[in-house]
């Protein structure tokens, strides 16, 4: 098995199969050995290999500076990678990007932004875009520069959806939205995914935002894929085991993280969800949350790197 496959086999059988089978119909986009070096010598992406299954809402998670924005920009065709390649699904993927800073022409009204979207695209769904603006009560005739940050975000979403993307890239989509709008936006986005044969890849560093939204996780650290897989499968595979302080780790499964506080040791263990390790008193088992397992993987990778 080559390096690429090993890099990818951080846990997901789906993406590993896709990679070995070449381009598969179940993959919206695959990036292979992608690297991006900025002027000044910073490597934003370093030998990054991953794939996004189609028809899912995939979360691209990583701390600030992990390379999320760079990866999305390369996928959207805005940045040229230093090396490596991006492969879209056979037959082509319509890619739309909602960038982090929500670029809009400040003097344009939302209606004029839709005109710009229509002029810049060969496929355009005016009704879908207008529906989105109406749903969130965005005034169609005020200059975008005078709208609030949340309203500007809604205009960006509307323009992106109007282009009828099959792959929608969202860079920190829920930032500067209030909690209520956040919930509504995610609900509406999910409805659009179901309606429109669309894959969504959204980046975030706030894991709480993902719960109930994303069903696939891509964890990025220092420009590489650290972990990927179906969210439910990952949750089923990870468990906390607590018991009396012990130096030796448990024998079954992969210990992602070990913590020793006072007389108690806690291990986050990744194991086969079908056959979870069985422990006896005084050891206790409790499920891990998405945040637990993301933080544990990030911390353990940092410990390895250090």
């Amino acid at each position: 098995m080559g390096d690429q496959a090993e890099d990818l086999l951080a846990g997901s059988s789906i993406s590993a199969e896709d990679l070995l089978a070449g381009s598969s119909t179940s993959t919206a986009v695959t990036v292979e050995r992608l690297a991006k070096r900025y002027r000044g010598g910073v490597w934003a992406l370093d030998d990054c290999t991953l794939s996004v299954p189609s028809g899912r809402v995939a979360a691209l998670v990583g701390m600030n500076g992990a390379g999320k924005t760079t990866l999305l920009s390369i996928m959207a065709g805005l940045l040229r990678p230093t090396s490596g390649e991006v492969r879209l699904r056979e037959g082509g993927e319509r890619v739309s990007l909602v960038a982090q800073d929500r670029p809009l022409y400040r003097s344009f009204t939302p209606a004029e932004m839709l005109m710009a979207g229509r002029q810049l695209n060969e496929v355009w769904d005016q009704e879908r875009a207008v529906r989105w603006l109406r749903r969130f009560d965005i005034p169609l005739d005020r200059p975008c520069g005078k709208l609030s940050g949340g309203q500007q975000a809604q205009v960006s979403f509307a323009v992106a959806l109007g282009a009828r993307p099959s792959l929608l890239l969202l860079d920190e989509p829920l930032a500067n939205l209030d909690p209520l709008a956040r919930r509504e936006v995610t609900r509406e986005l999910l409805a659009e995914v179901v309606d429109g044969d669309m894959t969504v890849l959204m980046s975030t560093h706030v894991i709480a935002e993902l719960v109930g939204v994303a069903d696939y996780l891509l964890l990025l650290a220092r420009g590489r894929l650290l972990l990927d897989g179906d969210v439910d499968e990952l949750l089923a595979a990870h468990r906390h085991y607590s018991g009396p302080r012990a130096q030796a780790p448990l024998l079954f499964g992969e210990v992602v993280q070990a913590k020793h506080v006072g007389s108690t040791s806690t291990y986050l263990v990744r194991a086969d969800p079908e056959h979870p390790p069985v422990v006896e008193e005084p050891w206790t088992v409790r499920p891990a949350t998405l945040e637990d397992l993301v933080v544990a993987h990030l911390e353990s990778s940092r410990a390895v790197a250090a």
């Binding site: 920009s73 959207a76 739309s96 670029p103 400040r106 002029q119 810049l120 323009v159 282009a163």
Partner: peptide
């Protein structure tokens, strides 16, 4: 300067 090239140049044109 306004970052709008990100919008303008990531469409079909």
């Amino acid at each position: 300067e306004q970052g709008t090239y990100v919008f303008a140049w990531s469409q079909d044109v």
